[in-house]
Design a protein around this nucleic acid. Structure first.
Lengths: 333, 333
DNA sequence: TTGTACGCGTTATCAG
DNA sequence: CTGATAACGCGTACAA
């Protein structure tokens, strides 16, 4: 019972291979009667069409690839949730690849996906990525690529993200309104378009109100961040308000404050991009800019399927923006 | 440049298809010279062997399937991290499927994976699953299956988990030592072997010390859990110590305590299975039983590759136990 | 060392 | 409505 093929079904039913094939695919040019017989036997013997054979003919893999920097990040796990939901609905399969924020990994994974394994790609570029030539290869293979969250200027396609500039602006404004006089923006990457936009919004607000501010470039590794933040917070002119551009950095701030006994919000007000379900349960509850992660994943997938269905690839820039929400909690009181 | 095939390479080099094929696979019966020429051209034209064609011949997909209940759960995202790492190392691809704790989904996903798409499967069964007949189908197809974390009695294979019984026992003991007189065990499923073991450990400790206790069966949905826990905690004889058998329930307890202003640890001591990085930052810091999630994912994958490499499937029960750690924090002080 | 020819399981085309 | 036959791209006996 291990490998039933169409051929065996045909033999047992005294039909030709092609008739069986047609019956199984519900072709209109087959009698209802044979369809029933064939399907019954197929069901009974547990027939499964061979994936590789049928893909070889049809040139479709019914699979999409998802390339993300990391998965232990509530934004990405929620996004995957959305992606998987839509994909399963459409009968597609989802391959997951993690770059761990490494450009090299991103490169080699991209290369792997050129072998016809996937019909389309969803991607969030790594924070190291500056050059996006590897993405052009997908165009040559007519594989549509949709970028989400970690979008990149250098590659033209459909992009799904949030209102980064506005979020940065609102965050700075909120801190200023709460009385901060000395702000810091924690950046995760000098290259990422998303980071630049958040920063731009933040800096514009700061400039408008003529508040002192600085930008702190952080690292990928926790140890490095602890060092940077410890330095920052124990300095003479330590900031009194921090905006963490990504969740990881918000958590790092809490950890360091905990260690150094810097009290939030009295000495330092903190606001962070985050999708942590536990934000309200932290000590103190964390004010967040929360992205609709699930929805972003979903929209990106819907857009990808639009391309897949109509057999085109996105060659011009186009953006779908889904707003983030500022949720005020005790950390900025 | 979109679809270079072996045939085109052959034409351009005035060689036969088979020679090119051999050259690319480094066959010993090919001259070094032709190998070089072929490989050079292949590289230059960006040749990628067609996955489906070659799999159709070789009957190997170089892909494993991972079926888990949910991804927004720090245990599973860490585990996937470990899985992906090993898989990539071995040149394998990883397909992800989420059951959302639904038995029906698990069933239909399992069926999908019988079509030769994957060489092996890693799985954590859903909390609804009682019947595991669907897993037997993998055996018939000679597809090895390794269970991790959410293991199930009914299916014989290699299983990777943690010391559930001991963890349950230790947790109850810890609460008792901290002075609790009235304990509650929060269960996520009546079927799961893992849950039963944790509960058994818990109940054995309780019995040994003759402490009052009860078992509370919780739900999959947050709303349902809020209701159950609100009832539990506002009752006359509310427990003074809780052991949450999974992270989700630990978080739910915090949320309800927050809402009802039940103070932890004064009125209620809480200990929970959890891989939350933020456990120390919660209000108050949460005492956890922490599983080596990354390592569990890794070991499960290593075991799967052992089967894959030696071309066998696990047909007898065998367990790999990786110990969890009790990390005491303020929630049980 | 290289080329010829066939088959993997399917789907698509063309007759009948 | 059904059957024979030719691809899809690759790998591999077998022959040269």
């Amino acid at each position: 019972m291990s490998k039933i093929t169409i051929k065996e079904l045909a033999q047992k039913l005294n039909l030709s291979i092609s008739t069986v094939s047609r019956a199984l695919s519900d072709s209109y040019e087959t009698s209802e009667e044979t369809k029933k017989k064939v399907k019954a036997l197929a069901e009974q013997l547990g027939y499964q069409p061979d994936l590789y054979a049928s893909n070889l003919r049809s040139r479709k893999s019914k699979t999409i690839g998802v390339i993300i920097p990391e998965i232990t990040n509530s934004f990405f796990s929620l996004a995957i949730n959305g992606i998987e939901e839509i994909a399963r609905e459409k009968g597609y399969h989802v391959l997951i690849y993690l770059t761990h924020e490494s450009y090299q990994q991103e490169l080699s994974i991209s290369r792997l996906l050129l072998d016809g394994r996937v019909d389309g790609v969803l991607m969030s570029v790594s924070s190291e990525t500056t050059d996006v030539k590897h993405l052009a290869d997908f165009n040559e293979r007519k594989i549509p690529v949709v970028l989400f969250d970690r979008i990149h200027d250098g590659y033209k396609t459909l992009k799904v993200g949030t209102d980064d500039y506005q979020s940065g602006f609102r965050s700075a404004l909120h801190l200023i309104q709460k009385g901060c006089k000395n702000l810091a923006y924690l950046s995760i990457s000098k290259q990422l378009c998303m980071d630049k936009r958040r920063m731009k919004g933040f800096l514009d607000a700061v400039k408008k109100f003529e508040i002192r501010s600085r930008v702190v470039y952080c690292h990928q590794d926790d140890a490095g961040n602890e060092k940077v933040l410890s330095g920052l917070l124990s300095a003479e002119d330590a900031p009194d308000g921090i905006f963490a551009s990504v969740e990881k950095l918000g958590v790092a701030v809490y950890e360091v404050c905990n260690k150094l006994s810097v009290s939030i919000p009295e000495k330092l007000k903190v606001i962070s991009f985050s999708n942590l379900k536990m934000a309200p349960l932290l000590q103190p509850p964390l004010t967040t800019i929360t992205q609709p992660a699930f929805e972003i994943g979903k929209q990106a997938t819907v857009a990808l399927f639009k391309a897949l269905k109509n057999n085109f690839i996105y060659e011009e820039d186009e953006e779908i923006i889904i707003r983030s929400e500022l949720i005020v909690r005790r950390s900025t009181e």
